[in-house]
């Protein structure tokens, strides 16, 4: 069933995916687009700031509120770029590894697993250092990924897209409820429930971003390098094995990359869902299914989308802000429903 759905969707996509020239054009577009959003993200905020102050703020001056606000927007923009890129890429990897159009770090419960692990560490083991957060989050992400995949592949037919999505979504709901149960009575946990239930990039500082950079770098490297392996996997396990690919190792390596990305991102932003679902699908429509193109595109696209969502969250509810996790859920959930509707379903 997986193969069948993949084939039909491929047919539709490959028609739209163009030659190298169109890919090049899109790539140029996707390099320019983040720059535009970076510009918007720095200039637009809850507070209106004049151009002179913006320039001064970018230069690092913090001597009035406007300049200080602009100075705060810069690390936030940087974090949104990183987190969006990581989640977009992780989504593409997960869809490739599981060959499941519904895969996404949020839907498969990976982000919530990371969140739960951090919350447990903070609440019960007094964890406080940034590195402890990150390692715990990565362990949680990995544990959740293995757990969900195991549950989803139990029973008849192995890991069908719907079974996997159901296992992930239910695990996510269960983890979210445990997060509430652990954090709610503890007023002392940084950020409270809100930030461990719904991800956001507000309040970012370089001190917080710096520790995750090496993890993200390794995650990006592993993920981008597994493009060729994912292309083989897309042919089906048998054919991939016939081409000399060690299927299990290929899956494990690519998943490791995605888990590093998700864990590190969740450790600083909290769980951001649906981004990794939407971005790879849109990118496939633009440039086709070749992972060597798809993966970098998904990373860039994710960065764009998260930045755009963050800017949107700052302007729609002035003077308040909406966390970016809320916006991505509002955009992504209808998309999720649309894909579910287009899946041919057999009842469980």
């Amino acid at each position: 069933m997986t193969a069948a759905t993949l084939k039909t969707s491929r047919g539709r996509w490959s028609a739209a995916s163009g030659s190298n020239r169109t890919r090049g054009l899109w790539l140029a577009g996707l390099v320019v687009l983040p720059l535009v959003f970076v510009f918007l993200s720095v200039t637009i905020g809850t507070r209106n700031v004049g151009w002179a102050d913006i320039a001064a703020g970018i230069g690092g001056a913090q001597d009035n509120i406007g300049r200080a606000a602009v100075a705060l927007r810069i690390p936030r923009t940087f974090l949104a770029l990183l987190a969006g890129g990581a989640l977009g890429l992780a989504g593409a990897i997960m869809q490739g590894v599981t060959r499941n159009p519904l895969a996404d770090p949020g839907i498969l419960g990976v982000n919530m697993g990371a969140s739960l692990a951090v919350v447990v560490g903070v609440a019960w083991f007094g964890m406080s250092s940034a590195y402890a957060y990150i390692w715990t989050a990565i362990a949680g992400a990995g544990g959740a990924a293995i757990f969900v995949y195991t549950i989803g592949s139990l029973g008849r037919g192995g890991a069908t897209p719907l079974k996997l999505a159901l296992a992930g979504a239910a695990t996510s709901v269960a983890f979210a409820s445990l997060v509430i149960a652990i954090v709610l009575p503890r007023g002392d946990i940084a950020g409270g429930i809100q930030s461990w239930q719904i991800g956001g990039v507000g309040g970012a500082t370089y001190q917080r971003i710096l520790p995750v950079l090496p993890f993200l770098a390794v995650g990006f490297a592993i993920s981008l390098l597994s493009a060729r392996k994912l292309n083989s996997l897309a042919l089906g396990d048998d054919l991939a094995a016939g081409l000399g690919e060690n299927v299990a190792v290929a899956r494990a390596v690519a998943s490791l990359g995605a888990i590093l990305l998700c864990g590190a991102t969740t450790a600083i932003c909290g769980p951001i869902g649906f981004l990794g679902l939407v971005v790879p699908h849109v990118c496939r429509l633009l440039i086709g299914v070749d992972h060597r193109w798809l993966l970098p595109f998904s990373a860039l696209g994710g960065a764009c989308l998260l930045l755009a969502a963050d800017v949107l969250g700052r302007i729609v509810a002035r003077p308040a802000e909406i966390d970016v996790g809320i916006i991505t859920a509002l955009i992504g959930a209808p998309f999720f429903i649309w894909i579910v509707r287009n899946q041919r379903v057999r009842d469980l």
Binding site: A165, A320, A329, F336
Partner: peptide, 30 residues
């Protein structure tokens, strides 16, 4: 879609629920 399949209903419901949860979160936040 040609009848309601249980799994699809649940997944659609989970998607709708995710949206509504974020609406609740948003209202509480603001």
């Amino acid at each position: 879609r040609n009848g309601v399949a249980g799994t699809r209903l649940i997944l659609v419901g989970i998607g709708v629920s995710a949206m509504l949860q974020s609406v609740i979160a948003y209202i509480l936040q603001s």
